[in-house]
Design a protein around this nucleic acid. Structure first.
Lengths: 323, 323
DNA sequence: CTGAAAGCGCTTACAG
DNA sequence: CTGAAAGCGCTTACAG
């Protein structure tokens, strides 16, 4: 079947291409009757404007690039979903690229984005070398939002979970249950913010028995010691699952002997075998807000980084300490 | 900073825009020395060709549209990852749209794809009304690949898991362990192919004790009966988890008293609390193959639907029957 | 081996 | 209220 453009429609309607364009875009300069006639005709012909023509002219691609380190990254899909919704509302489309944390791929895809004239870029995680380029290479003056931490002294916009709150919520929940001896399990290095804030929160509540545990062996040792912690804050639901199994091997029951808090509200957390108390980031909202922030940047508004407060979901792995 | 195009580069290089274009595209008609000079200059200026200009001219968008029903659809992310890889290899980008199974959204996004001149479309799931449009509306003469079943009498190309094999692999595994009384749990309607093929496989092996169970209550009843099945084939890992918990409530141990097979190899299957024997679709490969098929279609090659054989992953929920 | 011209499909001033 | 012209950035014949 024939593909129609403004020209062929203009010919069929007996007007000029310019008039077709104006009519279709609802410009008041075109007489109501003419506009209606053209619109009906365009509809009948299944006319879909070629966005390349539009984009070339207007310099608006209606495209946002989304750079993903890995698609199965813990909560990627929900973030992506939120981003997609915000984009669709504004009649934008998402261009997705997966980079496997590799600098070369990130650079290539970023260049592809630029070639496609994306109006904004969302980056979930990045290779350090790529970040370095962002500092030095002014090519990237496209509105950009990061979904993971950026260097402290930078002025990049970030939209992410409020990791400090995560730490605080965990500690406060455990203290409210009456726990006095806590531990943070695994990867405290990966989550400086979360660990630091939980540490501060402990201090403020006069809890000084709070240790960071980095390996499974260490955890086993600690859990066997006389003054063992009665509650564990973990870095993620996956870690919570590991901790739970280690505890059970040692003969501790959860939550009677040991409370455990996860982070993420992953599928694992909801499975009946675990039923994890966990702290859920606002995944979809992170994606939605990131995209909205892009639109604000495009509109030239002053924007700030957003840190979305997570939610405590109490299930069956936390309770009043039994000892 | 200034944005450079063929024109400004031509001016700086002292040649015509056409020569720049030819040089950058490696056309032999331009002298080696000139080409080198232009390439170096373009590099210095961080020149990235505007793909709208290219696309408008060549009618090649280098874009593939991916219509997703839902982003957290069981194995979406890995499929998407595979698709992204194949696309990147060919220097194509993926345009992703999420439709929540709604016909209107599917139509809108499909139109957006057309406007963006996508050269191919991948559709994971679709609303029946959208499929109807595909039949009647010849607008969609863009190469299209479906990731879920299409009407039998249609000529649409499909790339998906081989569901018949899934059923057969499950039954053969259980028979090889010595099971003689089997059941299929939940949603046998949703998975006609899988259920039918497992049924046939049972018959061929002279197993006539094979029932389809549709509700949890029914399962409880069946598992308490004297000649209860010794193995359950499930529709998904999620169902396998449900079955496992129901079995344990009744006092059956898995796999000693009851073998269970899941399908998907989801995260849940790998968790130590479950350790499911499961049948894993080639998720990434499905995405990769779908995209490759699009390229074949673009190239005008004759292509067929692909049904990728899943893999049996034996973990701890299947064993020789204990009774 | 290189340049001048035309055109992809659209929109945006500018005339009338 | 409508049309003719120019141009977005590129590539592709066509001349020379």
């Amino acid at each position: 079947m024939v593909k129609h453009g403004v020209k062929s429609i203009a010919r069929l309607a007996g007007v000029s291409p310019a008039t077709v364009s104006l009519a279709l875009n609802g410009d008041p300069r075109v007489a109501d009757k003419t506009r209606e006639r053209i619109k009906i005709l365009a509809d009948e012909l299944n006319y879909i404007p070629n966005s390349f023509g539009q984009a070339l002219q207007s310099n608006k691609s209606n495209l946002i690039g989304f750079l993903l380190s890995e698609v199965n990254h813990s909560y990627f899909s929900e973030i992506f979903q939120g981003a997609g919704e915000a984009a669709a509302e504004h009649n934008y489309a998402l261009l997705a690229a997966i980079t496997h944390h590799r600098h070369q791929q990130e650079t290539d895809q970023l260049n592809a984005f630029m070639g496609k004239q994306v109006e904004g870029i969302i980056i979930d995680q990045y290779h350090p070398a790529t970040m370095y380029n962002f500092f030095t290479d002014k090519r990237h003056n496209v509105p950009t939002v990061f979904l993971s931490a950026v260097p402290d002294n930078s002025s990049f916009i970030v939209v992410k979970n409020d990791d400090r709150q995560t730490g605080i919520i965990a500690v406060e929940h455990l203290i409210s249950l009456g726990h006095k001896r806590l531990a943070f399990c695994f990867s405290s290095v990966l989550s400086q913010e979360r660990y630091q804030s939980s540490l501060e929160c402990c201090r403020q509540n006069n809890i000084d028995d709070y240790q960071a545990i980095t390996t499974a062996e260490e955890l086993q040792y600690v859990l066997r010691s006389p003054n063992r912690p009665t509650a564990i804050i973990t870095y993620s639901d996956n870690h919570a699952v590991q901790v739970m199994h280690i505890a059970m091997e040692i003969g501790l029951s959860v939550p009677e002997d040991l409370s455990i808090i996860g982070v993420d509200d992953s599928n694992a957390a909801r499975l009946p075998a675990y039923n994890l108390t966990t702290i859920a980031p606002q995944k979809q909202n992170i994606g939605y807000t990131a995209t909205s922030t892009i639109f604000d940047l495009i509109a030239g508004k002053a924007v700030q980084s957003t840190y979305l407060k997570p939610e405590l979901i109490i299930r069956n792995t936390t309770a009043v300490p039994g000892i």
